[in-house]
């Protein structure tokens, strides 16, 4: 168990999540990509806490990351519900009103 191994694993999870967030067309799948990225943040923050500065501040940062994850999920589901209701679709390509 080293900081480098922890961070490389976190980087791999983050990259997988980034791929999903960019490539997926279904809103829920995009959310899954974002959650994988936040998952990587949890691992990286826990690694920084344990290997560099194991004081309570790092744990509080982890709690904030968990809170951000719940907010992302709640808002994502609400937006997906609205999109399904208004457009009868759950695809990001059907919600490009603000693009360009």
């Amino acid at each position: 168990m080293t900081l480098e191994l922890t961070l490389i694993l976190a980087a791999a999870i983050f990259a997988v999540g980034l791929y999903g967030a960019i490539s997926q067309q279904v809103v829920v799948m995009v959310m899954m990509g974002l959650e994988l990225m936040i998952n990587a943040l949890i691992l990286a923050a826990a690694g920084f806490w344990w290997f560099l500065a194991p004081n309570p501040t790092g744990q509080v940062l982890l709690m904030v990351i968990l809170a951000v994850m719940t907010l992302e999920m709640a808002m994502g589901f609400a937006v997906a519900t609205l999109l399904h209701r208004v457009r009868n679709s759950d695809m990001t390509d059907m919600a490009t009103d603000l693009s360009g």
């Binding site: 168990m1 949890i42 826990a46």
Partner: peptide
């Protein structure tokens, strides 16, 4: 990842 966090002694998180 949660189990890994447990390995890093962050029991609650």
């Amino acid at each position: 990842v949660g189990l890994q966090v447990l390995f890093l002694q962050q029991n609650y998180v």
